[in-house]
Design a protein around this nucleic acid. Structure first.
Length: 203
DNA sequence: AATCGGATTGTT
DNA sequence: ACAATCCGATTG
């Protein structure tokens, strides 16, 4: 019943994921910042910024699978980032988890992130979020709605959302597919990719 | 087989 | 403004 709420377009799924609760390896967190990503050029949600845009590969295949599965990838050789696949099975789309509030297991999260990190920064940014929750590349493809998985997702009520361009993307840099809960200190700062064309250029 | 570059982060 | 760091994807 609940995973069906993610079998929709990526921006709608991003709204569903805002305010959802993710529990992984002793840490429970509420998602407060996400980004929507689409798929291939001739699909329903073409998105040149998406890993799935060129078509299915070994890395991005989870984006083409059923909704509610975790898509992890390694960023810049050192960070793990996590997405929730969305849209119907066979159609590429996902939502990147960018920031969360730690509700439970804060000391565990801090042990993974470092003693000096302020509470609001423990899961700020997609790489930091995965570090705080103990998400690794081994988790790629797991079903977040299967009780046997090491990570579970619980969807909640729709949260208030503010929208803006996605962080760090070099293409489709103006598309406002980043959503966050207004006023939360856990939300990361916006940074435009230095490779992106000047603001206002087309996708 | 070699090269390219990035959905990042923290420091200078 | 920039370095760290590496693997998937593309190209020859």
């Amino acid at each position: 019943m609940s995973v069906a709420r993610l079998a929709v377009d990526p921006l709608a799924a991003a709204h569903v994921l805002l305010g959802a609760t993710l529990t992984v390896r002793g840490v429970r967190a509420t998602i407060v910042e996400v980004e929507a990503y689409g798929g291939v050029p001739d699909g329903p949600w073409p998105d040149r910024a998406a890993h799935s845009y060129p078509g299915p590969t070994g890395r991005n295949k989870v984006m083409f699978g059923p909704p509610g599965h975790l898509y992890t990838y390694r960023s810049y050789g050192m960070h793990v980032c996590a997405n929730v696949a969305c849209g119907p099975d066979g159609t590429a789309a996902a939502v990147l988890l960018r920031a969360a509030v730690i509700d439970d297991g804060e000391s565990l999260a801090r042990s993974r992130r470092g003693a000096t990190v302020p509470a609001a920064g423990l899961a700020r940014g997609p790489g930091n979020l995965c570090a705080a929750l103990g998400i690794t590349m081994e988790d790629n493809g797991i079903d977040l709605f299967d009780a046997r998985s090491p990570a579970w997702l619980r969807l909640g009520e729709p949260a208030a959302a503010q929208a803006g361009p996605r962080v760090g993307v070099s293409r489709a840099a103006d598309r406002p597919w980043r959503l966050w809960v207004p006023g939360r200190p856990e939300v990361s700062a916006y940074r435009r990719s230095p490779r992106a064309p000047a603001p206002g250029a087309s996708d």
